[in-house]
Design a binder for these strands. Structure first.
Length: 229
DNA sequence: GCAGTGATTTGCT
DNA sequence: GCAAATCACTGCG
């Protein structure tokens, strides 16, 4: 499968904004990896914002918290680039840089709904062709494994450059209400409502109360955001 | 279904 | 030297 003509590239200005504004808008957009063997693509159904040190208060869970280093340089660079880092020795996670060059901020892609190449995603994940979509791309490192994303090859790529093997598109799919919750897997700023997901979607990661608003109980840091506009 | 735990690289202090 | 934006496997209820 090739990139359909109807898929429109996102604009740089879309990402030149605070990560907490960009993250919910990324839901429904398509991440596409063009490989020699064909297209691997998935719709973003879960994302987390990480804020730069300019934010008040600064975000202690962000890799940019202590200022620029060689590792996090991409987050301080221009918007719309891929920040891929290794974690726990065996996995990768992928972010999209936000804000203008010189200011940090990024969005961690946490889950996708497979759109193209799901059989190869299953193979990349070490699963059979009948694997459930949830087992392919539900989790930040699972989606990197499914799409074959690594730090060595993909860190720093411009996601808005037409020749890039890794790009982001708007295919016209509309997302309704957005589930907002605290972020997952961090130990600082655990109450900040910076995780955004499609409510009840099968491919969203995490425990049920962080996937389905009906299961969230009365927690004040878990709520539904109405569609804007 | 849930909690506990091991694997194992990287970058920063 | 250590902590990390994780995952999969195990054992148990």
């Amino acid at each position: 499968m090739e990139i359909p003509r109807a898929w429109r590239p996102l604009r740089r200005a879309f990402f030149e904004a605070p990560a907490e504004s960009v993250a919910p808008l990324l839901l429904g957009k398509v991440l596409a990896h063009q490989t020699a063997d064909g297209l691997l693509a998935g719709r973003i159904v879960e994302a987390e914002a990480y804020l730069g040190p300019h934010n008040d208060p600064p975000d202690p869970a962000a890799h940019s918290y202590r200022g620029p280093t060689p590792r996090n340089a991409v987050i301080f660079g221009p918007a719309g680039h891929a920040y891929v880092y290794a974690i726990y020795g065996r996995y990768f996670c992928m972010n999209v840089s936000c804000e203008v060059e010189g200011r940090a901020g990024c969005v961690l892609l946490r889950a996708l709904e497979p759109v193209a190449g799901s059989e190869r995603m299953a193979a990349n994940r070490g699963l059979g062709p009948g694997a459930k979509e949830r087992d392919l791309t539900s989790g930040p490192s699972r989606l990197c494994q499914a799409l074959g994303l690594t730090r060595a090859i993909h860190n720093g790529l411009d996601l808005l450059e037409p020749d890039s093997p890794l790009q982001l598109f708007d295919d016209g799919h509309a997302v309704g209400e957005v589930l907002v919750t605290p972020r997952i897997g961090i130990h600082d700023a655990i109450d900040w409502p910076l995780r955004f997901a499609v409510p009840g979607h099968e491919c969203v990661s995490g425990p049920k109360k962080l996937r389905d608003p009906q299961s969230a109980g009365g927690s004040s840091s878990i709520f539904l955001l109405k569609p804007s506009g």
